[in-house]
Design a binder for these strands. Structure first.
Lengths: 234, 234
DNA sequence: CAGACTATGGACTGTCAAGTCCAGTTCTGA
DNA sequence: TCAGAACTGGACTTGACAGTCCATAGTCTG
């Protein structure tokens, strides 16, 4: 994995400093975008000297890749009451409601902290792109598992593919957030997620669509996630 | 929009120069992102001097706002065989197929030129955000009109809302492109669009979207964003 | 053709950011 | 206690980029 010039903290104080830098960077980047944040900004807000930042991270790209993981942690943590129980219609609806009301509270601004990073990083930094793919995997897996449990209980149409349904729902969520952000209108997300719910209830695409589709399921999610996260966060 | 310091070309040569700058900028920005393109890059590729660029555009932000329109023109032009006839299942499927095969040809890279700009610009430049919202409107209107014609012919469920269905489909498209870009896997778009087709056939959400859209009133103005971000990320 | 308007090249300025280096100080944990 | 780790702070280099300016070349029109 190339030159390992960056350092892992060896004391609790060092760990705290590194964490503070990371959290600050994640905050600023979510707010202003990657290009809108300088390392001086990060140092100032985290009350840390430049030398420390370069002590723990190789360069800005290294920091940004680490930020992807931290941002994902934060996004998932904000939903943790729902994510492990997405195995009933009521639970899935409650999850959607939470996502929508969060956007309403923000007046539609901000979009998805992870999704926004895709547009900024995916074409410029392969490591960051892989980390973002891993983020979506982590997120989507919760829904896929819930849908699998529903399928096992016969609450989905027998020919439904839980993995594909989860992917399609994630797409509605991300796209709904893009439209919400562009139009400054949280109803866009509501409409997108209501569409996703209708799709889930209908059992999703059947026939040719399922034949050609490969969701998380046939992509060896666990192994890839671990590898990509390891690559990104070291 | 305030001070009109930028100049409209008054000769055919001037018009050609301005168009060349715009087309070049749109190309480069689609490729590398807004922050990844310098005005020197644009000048070099367009074989134009910096003074020309500043003659026709106020500054970089002005250029970028103009690029939004040009990019939208290009995206819609790439679909013009389909956009005006999205009024049958076969036509909608053909449109989806074209979108997917385009992504396949690019190996999943690039995402949506318009959608990517949202993440880069929406929070930083209100004019650009408005232009992007208008772009989505232009795009979505084609589908909405097609669905309206289908509804008029009784080819949709009677309680279906063509406008909401179009919005939900656009969300699936945009989100599918985000996932495709992050995972470098065009099948993600296929799955998302198959989900959208299932949703369309099912008639989409009934009632729920309309119920909640009345709740726009309780959008709380300012202030919460920073606090919630801090809560989510801190 | 001549003067007015337009287009153009390219140098120039100021600013800001990334990354390096180092000399010295404080803290932590075995 | 003491060695190693964490940390400070700033100077410095290098490079990139936004934006300005002016002299000149080209083009239009009366």
């Amino acid at each position: 994995m190339g030159a390992m010039s960056r350092v892992e903290p060896k004391t609790t104080k060092g760990r705290a400093t590194r964490d503070r830098v990371l959290a600050t960077a994640a905050d600023l980047i979510t707010d202003r975008g990657v290009a809108g944040v300088s390392l001086d900004d990060v140092c100032a807000h985290a009350r840390v000297s430049r030398s420390q930042l370069y002590h723990y991270f190789d360069d800005k790209a290294d920091l940004v890749r680490a930020v992807v993981g931290v941002t994902t942690d934060a996004v998932l943590a904000g939903q943790d009451e729902h994510l492990d129980h997405l195995d009933s219609w009521a639970a899935i609806e409650a999850w959607c409601d939470q996502l929508v009301s969060f956007q309403q509270a923000r007046n539609g601004a901000g979009g998805c902290p992870i999704g926004s990073l895709v547009g900024q990083l995916a074409e410029r930094d392969e490591g960051a792109r892989a980390a973002l793919a891993a983020s979506f995997d982590r997120w989507e897996r919760h829904l896929a598992h819930g849908l699998e449990r529903m399928a096992a209980r016969g609450e989905l149409r027998p020919d439904a593919d839980p993995a594909a349904l989860a992917t399609a729902t994630m797409a509605s969520l991300q796209g709904g957030l893009v439209l919400t952000q562009a139009r400054r209108d949280p109803r866009q997300l509501r409409i997108a997620l209501d569409g996703a719910l209708a799709m889930l209830r209908s059992g999703g695409a059947t026939g040719s669509a399922l034949r050609t589709s490969g969701g998380l399921a046939d992509q060896d999610p666990v192994g890839r996630v671990a590898q990509e996260l390891g690559h990104a966060l070291g």
